[in-house]
C-alpha cells in the first residue's frame, strides 16, 4: 500500500478567529511500499496532524486536497475507516498508557476482536501468541497477567503487540523510543528492523531523534510550518544546509562529523549511517597512512 498526499491542507478551528491554526499547508508526498519513512520537523510543524490523516483519525477537510492510502480514497465519504485502520497500525507516544484490559491476552486481542468480528477463538489465540513472541515476550508467562503488573519495558512491548496483532501493512510510530533507557531503545530498534523484515511492509516514524532517522530511514520528509520543505534520503536532507537551517533541525552526529572532516579534506562522503561513516573514515585514514 502506497500513501499519496496531494495538496493536503488542514486547519484547526477554521471558523474561529484567533484560534484558527493552519496545521498542514499544501502537503505533497508519496510514501512507497517497503519504506522506513521518517517524518521530521520541530514540534508544531504539522507532523502529527499529517500522520493522523493516514488512518483517518483526522479526516481530510472539505477542499483539503487528496489523500490515498492503497486503494482507500480518504476524501471519499464512504471510505471504510475501520478496514483502513486494520491495515494501517498506529502507535502513539508512550503506548503503554492505553493498556486497559484485565489480562495481557485480552489487551492484545482487543484490536483483533474489533477488526474481525467473526474470528475464531483458536485464531485469536494463535495471533496473540505470534504477536507476543514477535515483541519478545513469553506467551505462557504473561498472557494471564494483568498488564499493570508488568515492568515499564514489558508494558511497552505488550502495547506494541496490541497494534501489530492486526497484521497491519503500514505501521505508523510517533516518537517510539521516548522514555526508554539506552538498552530498551536498542532492543526496540532491533525489534523495529525485525518487524520490517517479516511483519509489516512499510514503517512510518515520527521522530525528533536525527541519529535514529539517519541510521534507519530509507527516506524522510521535513516539515516546517505545516509545509513539507524537503523529501529525500537522510543523506540528501542532512547534507543540504538550507533545509537544516529552515527547519531548525539538528544534524545527526555522523552528518556533522562528515561535514567537518570534508572541510579538512579527510573524507569526501558518507551516507550518514554509523557503519558507512566509519568504513569511509577507516579507508581515508588508511590512505592517509594513519592506519597501517
Amino acid at each position: 500500500m502506497k500513501v499519496v498526499a496531494k495538496n493536503l491542507n488542514f486547519t484547526y478551528s477554521p471558523k474561529t478567529k484567533g484560534l484558527s491554526f493552519r496545521a498542514l499547508d499544501n502537503v505533497n508526498v508519496e510514501i512507497k511500499e517497503g519504506e522506513i519513512f521518517g517524518i521530521i520537523g520541530k514540534t508544531g510543524s504539522g507532523k502529527s496532524t499529517f500522520v493522523q490523516h493516514i488512518n483517518g483519525l483526522i479526516k481530510v477537510q472539505k477542499g483539503g486536497g487528496a489523500l490515498k492510502v492503497g486503494d482507500y480514497d480518504l476524501t471519499d465519504k464512504k471510505c471504510d475507516y475501520k478496514s483502513l485502520r486494520a491495515k494501517v497500525g498506529m502507535m502513539f507516544q508512550y503506548p503503554e498508557h492505553q493498556l486497559f484490559a484485565e489480562t495481557v491476552f485480552e489487551d492484545v486481542a482487543f484490536a483483533l476482536k474489533n477488526f474481525a468480528k467473526d474470528i475464531s477463538a483458536e485464531e485469536i489465540a494463535a495471533r496473540v501468541k505470534e504477536a507476543l513472541s514477535t515483541v519478545g515476550l513469553d506467551y505462557n508467562e504473561v498472557k494471564d497477567k494483568s498488564p499493570f503488573d508488568l515492568s515499564g519495558g514489558q508494558k511497552r512491548r505488550v502495547a506494541i503487540a496490541g497494534v501489530i496483532v492486526a497484521k497491519p501493512e503500514i505501521l505508523v510510530l510517533d516518537e517510539p523510543a521516548a522514555g526508554l533507557d539506552p538498552k530498551g531503545k536498542r532492543e526496540f530498534l532491533e525489534l523495529l528492523l525485525r518487524l520490517h523484515k517479516d511483519y509489516v511492509k512499510t514503517i512510518i516514524i515520527v521522530s525528533h531523534d536525527m541519529n535514529l532517522v539517519a541510521e534507519y530511514c530509507t527516506r524522510a520528509a521535513v516539515f516546517s510550518g505545516g509545509k513539507i520543505i524537503a523529501t529525500g534520503t537522510p543523506k540528501e536532507i542532512f547534507s543540504d544546509k538550507n533545509i537544516i537551517e529552515k527547519s531548525g533541525l539538528d544534524l545527526p552526529l555522523t552528518a556533522a562529523l562528515t561535514e567537518k572532516l570534508k572541510s579538512k579534506g579527510i573524507i569526501t562522503d558518507s551516507d550518514f549511517t554509523v557503519e558507512d561513516f566509519t568504513e569511509k573514515l577507516i579507508v581515508a585514514l588508511k590512505n592517509g597512512g594513519k592506519i597501517r
Binding site: D181, P182, N211, L253, T278, L281, I282, K290, I291, R292
Partner: peptide, 21 residues
C-alpha cells in the same frame, strides 16, 4: 550495565578496533 557510550565514543571505538590511534 545496559548502558551505552555517547555516539561519538561508539564511533571512536569502532575506529580504534580497526587500528586508528
Amino acid at each position: 550495565l545496559g548502558l551505552e557510550q555517547p555516539l561519538a565514543g561508539i564511533i571512536a571505538d569502532k575506529l580504534r578496533a580497526q587500528g586508528a590511534k
